[in-house]
Design a protein around this nucleic acid. Sequence first.
DNA 1: TGCCAGTCAATAGG
DNA 2: CCTATTGACTGGCA
Length: 348
Amino acid sequence: VSSAEESVKSQLEDPCVQPAGPESSEASESQPDTLLPLPVPGHAGLSIQEMVAMSAEVDTYAITKRVKEVLTDNNLGQRLFGERILGLTQGSVSDLLARPKPWHKLSLKGREPFVRMQLWLNDPNSVDRLMEMKRLEKKAYMKRQHSSLSESPSREGGVCMGDYSRAVSPQPIVRDHQPQLKKPRVVLAPEEKEALKRAYQQKPYPSPKTIEELANQLNLKTSTVINWFHNYRSRIRRELFIEEIQAAVGGKSGADGESSCDGAESDSRASGLEEPNPDEPAASGHTDALFTFPESSSALASSSASSATPSSNPRDSSLRRKKAANLNSIIHRLEKAANRDEPHEWEF
DNA sequence: TGCCAGTCAATAGG
DNA sequence: CCTATTGACTGGCA
């Protein structure tokens, strides 16, 4: 029941509305930060970092929920909000709003965006100010469009913020000849991801040797494999946090006692980590691994474009797998803590 | 060195 | 345009 309606600590209350000031930030469209480097507006020279350090428990889930509402209600985008208010890029904002980590698991740095959101929400003029910025941006954009029509390719001297050089430029095909300053961005094929996920199930923390092998088998750079494991691990971890939050927020009736060691049931929403439908026909290899769950493999090898299964429980087996992998992960840590190298087999 | 938390930024859909 | 996803990078820690 507890939850937290305005669990905001007094600190963050912000009655005094910053008086707009000489807002001359114009002309130079898309000038990076306007007021990111933090001497917080109406707060006696307190920097955000100081506020973060002082602020008490904050309900990150509630905050992001509110922010999403306010943004959509007012037709304000994540990009604008991120760049002007949080000092983050659109992708980061999207991620943050979609799956906020619980406050107590955030580092000081990680808490900063939430404090800023809190501040923003408490400022009665925040929305209007943002809308004004949006207007100005659009105006600047129009101006640019207009001027570019009358002259040669006007290369903006801007700080490469919103620079979409495309559209009208006669560049039939991007047969790039430009000095590879732009690394092509690796895009793993679904099957490659599958293979990596399978490998993860076996060993969340592969040894350099294993990584090397995987890289060779899949024809990927080892750094790509390494990065993939880092990313996957942390994203799985975050998934678990979210389940934790939802479990806490959810059932308010009676004690939600979970007998099992890890309270993390509740239906977790579709996450990017979930594969449409794992199971490879073969997949006969997984015998070792500390934990492995059989999981009745199903046919249904529909490649992607799932969305089918109008009503069934797609996840569950995947949830179980996540838990299994999580256990392996925990074991890995315990072993490390125990100063034991090579997380090899244990006897249970 | 390896790990992690935060992010960035390219991209894929809408 | 906008949002979601995700490989790669950065800084901190041990």
